[in-house]
């Protein structure tokens, strides 16, 4: 790790003040991603501002029937919270598909949103990477890119966002509450992460000196018909090759509303409003699901090693929507995929 200073923020205002006063400082809560990257010398903050003791651990019901969750709630507490299990089981399912029990105990909700890509070149400081070292080039483009993005890529970067939780949050139209020097603001989860474009070193739209204080779930949780499916290289404790969050509002077999988000395919959780719109009013059948998959994957492009992801994503979308329509019980434990 680099030689850094440590401060403990006393409240959110203090954290914002410390950020403003210390260029190169980073916030730390669970630390599961940041410490890892610091040990790799990928992240070299001048100062760590410890926000882990700030009072951002509440679950609060919102006026419109939603839920506001403090940014420091550990991932495991979120996944196992009775309100989440009952009203937003898609979110619980996605969180429990990620990392390990230990890491979920440590990682915070806000930190999960901030986790950085697993691209091997991003991690290896001996290789070029535009995300780590802007302008140095992208080694993945013509390198080992089996794990890389098929949607929303750029000539500068084909890295993916590794979060499972964010995929479910994207499908649920979650909001991100942010505080900063200019006050508080709220942005949609789907607008929180960026596509790489020509500035892949910027992962999110969180501004300089800003801090995530909460996420907010709208009232609709799709608790009846949902599914989170994660495909990976071993049966647990691995990052997604493809993950799909699907949620349906059904009237009999007719789809009133569909939500569909993918992980492992892009620099951000991938939503396709077009695909969702195409499902609206249709019967919940494999044909319609397949058509939605085609729409979502329009424009998907592969490099040398990740072409399989396009077909895998198509099949995973169909399967996940089918599971959601059938109200298939979700389990990370029973590894047979229903």
């Amino acid at each position: 790790m680099n030689n850094f200073q440590y401060s403990r923020a006393t409240d959110v205002t203090d954290a914002i003040r410390l950020l403003a006063a210390n260029p190169g400082a980073r916030l730390i809560a669970g630390g599961t991603n940041l410490i890892d990257l610091m040990k790799e010398n990928v992240e070299r903050p001048s100062r760590l501002i410890d926000i882990s003791r700030l009072p951002l651990r509440k679950f609060e019901e919102t006026a419109d029937g939603g839920l506001r969750i403090g940014a420091l709630v550990p991932n495991s507490d979120l996944a196992y919270h009775p309100l989440i299990e009952q009203r937003y089981p898609l979110l619980a399912s996605a969180i429990l598909a990620g990392a390990s029990a230990q890491l979920r105990n440590m990682a915070s909700v806000g930190g999960n949103l901030m986790q950085r890509t697993r691209c091997a070149y991003f991690y290896d400081t001996a290789t070029p990477c535009n995300k780590r070292n802007p302008g140095s080039g992208c080694s993945a483009l013509d390198g080992l890119n089996r794990n890389h993005a098929i949607l929303g890529t750029s000539a500068s970067c084909i890295a993916t966002n590794p979060s499972d939780m964010s995929v479910a949050l994207a499908a649920l139209n979650a909001l991100v509450h942010i505080a900063g020097p200019a006050g508080e603001r709220v942005i949609a989860l789907t607008d929180f992460h960026r596509l790489p474009g020509d500035a892949p070193h910027v992962d999110t739209n969180l501004g300089a000196g800003e801090i995530i204080t909460a996420i907010e779930l709208p009232s609709r949780g799709f608790a009846q018909n949902y599914s989170y499916l994660k495909i990976r290289d071993r049966l647990s404790y691995a990052f997604a090759l493809i993950s799909v969050a699907a949620a349906l509002d059904l009237n009999g077999n007719a789809i009133r509303e569909a939500r569909l988000a993918l992980g492992g395919v892009a620099h951000k959780p991938w939503r396709s409003l077009e695909a969702e719109a195409a499902l609206r009013g249709k019967a919940a059948t494999p044909d319609h699901f397949s058509h939605a998959a085609d729409l979502l994957l329009q424009g998907a492009t592969a490099r040398a090693h990740n072409g399989f992801k396009i077909e895998l994503a198509r099949r995973a979308i169909v399967r996940t929507l089918t599971q959601a329509a059938d109200a298939t019980p979700q389990s990370q434990s029973h590894k047979k995929i229903a």
Partner: peptide, 24 residues
């Protein structure tokens, strides 16, 4: 897994070099 352009092993860790976990 090695990137032969650099002659470097690119999964030199036990997150990306997969060994079986309990669930496997």
């Amino acid at each position: 897994v090695m990137d032969h352009r650099f002659g470097r092993i690119m999964n030199a860790n036990i997150a990306e070099y997969h060994i079986p976990v309990n669930a496997d």
